[in-house]
Amino acid sequence: MNKAIEKEFVKKLEANQNIAHKICRIYATGEAEHKDLFQEITIQLWKAYPKFRGDAKFSTWMYRVALNTAITLYRKQKRRIKTQEWDQYAFKIKAEEYDDTTEQNLKLMYQAIKELNDIDKALVFLYLEDKNYTEISETLGISEVNARVKMNRVKKKLKELLSID
């Protein structure tokens, strides 16, 4: 394909790569899986790029493709590498910002999210990304009312998971 288009695409993706990293953070465990999922998202974005119309925002379009890749297309490779350190990278820098209990709570919360099913994870992700219910319903293909109901259920489920821990 055209070199100029490739360059333009890579530039856009590089600027928006946080979206994909955050999805990996919710769906992947360990460094190898994180990179694997990120790569699959990149490939899917690139494949779909010819149909991307400039009038839509790249980031909005990217949310959809990346989330679809994570919950529909992506197949985990069978790997057994334990990379605990990677999983906790987000907590490292916060030592000064939070006291120990808050940090501990956050850690537990991330663990609880990992235990949710793929659809619930998507809901949590979109919520954390500050998406409104219209956007959530359009991304997942469910009605707005059901998205709202489901979100409340997920919040309850998280609460339960945390109280068990």
């Binding site: 490739e6 530039k11 590089e14 955050k22 820098i93």
Partner: peptide, 24 residues
């Protein structure tokens, strides 16, 4: 957390484009 997320460089992303998809 944005500041602490890993970042791939342009060359790394370019290399990924050449990889084969393993999609369902």
């Amino acid at each position: 957390q944005e500041a602490s997320l890993p970042q791939f460089k342009t060359e790394e992303i370019c290399a990924m484009l050449k990889k084969k998809s393993s999609s369902l």
